[in-house]
């Protein structure tokens, strides 16, 4: 049942962007409603899966890498709805959908969905910490998406090869603003997540602290580097997300189940 929900979600998340690209290639107007509806349907299936899994295991579904990737995908979609709506960033969903679908397909096809052998029941704060850190990752992921969009649009402006969909894309100024704000939002969430872990469970392994701390420093430095150009920030935010997902997977591989949220526990 759970996997079917995830396959349906993946299908919807790919369908919206695929239709959008087909429409734009055919020279037709950006099907905003269609795209948003498909992603909303994908989000609904993700939510149903998480509720189903949460009831099954009796707490927040963040007990293994499989669940973490799904929760991350869900958080990215949630951020997309908040940011995409708030800032009217058109085509953000077209870039976000495939990323979330990729995370889900990785979880479905390449990751074993089994309870972590070292997983033990834990207090509520651990779930809180893990959920906060995953939300931070989601914000960083969307910042990475905005960064990639910025780089693509900027390249077309510089080379004057405008191509299909150019006039449907948001302005590079809006993308730079969203990129920076998402990094800030992620940095704040990650700070709270890591601080709560540090305050409530200081005996966490040093290896994990190094991962979490490095990631925190990396993202905190990005928005603080005020003199950096939007282009450099976009490039770094895209690169930082790749690094952070790699870190997440490594910690997921070596760490305990509930610790993967912020690479902290």
């Amino acid at each position: 049942m759970g996997r079917i929900l995830l396959y349906l979600s993946t299908l919807c998340l790919l369908l919206g962007p695929a239709l959008t690209l087909a429409f734009l290639k055919a020279g037709r107007a950006y099907p905003r409603l269609l795209n948003r509806s498909a992603i909303a349907a994908g989000f609904l299936f993700q939510t149903l899966f998480l509720i189903h899994r949460g009831r099954e295991i009796g707490h927040c579904p963040l007990t293994n890498l499989f669940e973490v990737l799904i929760f991350l995908g869900w958080s990215i979609t949630l951020f997309y709805f908040v940011i995409g709506h708030g800032y009217r960033i058109s085509l953000l969903g077209t870039f976000t959908g495939p990323l979330v679908a990729l995370l889900q397909l990785t979880a479905l096809l390449a990751v074993t969905d089994a309870p972590h052998p070292r997983f033990l029941p834990h207090p509520a704060w651990v779930e809180w910490h893990a959920a906060l850190c995953i939300m931070a990752y989601a914000a960083f992921a969307l910042a990475g998406v905005a960064g990639v969009m910025f780089l693509a649009q900027e390249h077309r402006l510089k080379t004057r090869r405008l191509g299909p969909g150019f006039y449907e894309m948001p302005s590079i100024t809006a993308l730079a603003t969203v990129n920076l704000r998402l990094i800030w939002a992620g940095a704040v969430l990650l700070t709270v997540g890591l601080a709560s872990a540090w305050a409530l469970h200081p005996q966490v392994s040093a290896k994990i602290w190094i991962w979490g701390g490095s990631l925190w420093l990396l993202y905190l430095l990005l928005p603080l580097a005020r003199r950096w150009s939007p282009r450099r920030l976009a490039l770094l935010s895209a690169a930082a997300f790749v690094i952070s997902v790699t870190a997440l997977c490594l910690v997921g591989h070596f760490g305990t189940g509930a610790s993967m949220g912020g690479a902290a526990l």
């Binding site: 020279g27 037709r28 402006l157 006039y167 894309m169």
Partner: peptide, 26 residues
């Protein structure tokens, strides 16, 4: 207008400049 691209894209120097400015600054 909605089902074809007949109205899409700028077709004069002035409108190209405006569209580009909007793609840069919003």
């Amino acid at each position: 207008r909605t089902r074809t691209a007949i109205t899409r894209g700028p077709v004069s120097v002035g409108s190209v400049a405006v569209e580009l400015a909007e793609r840069i600054f919003g």
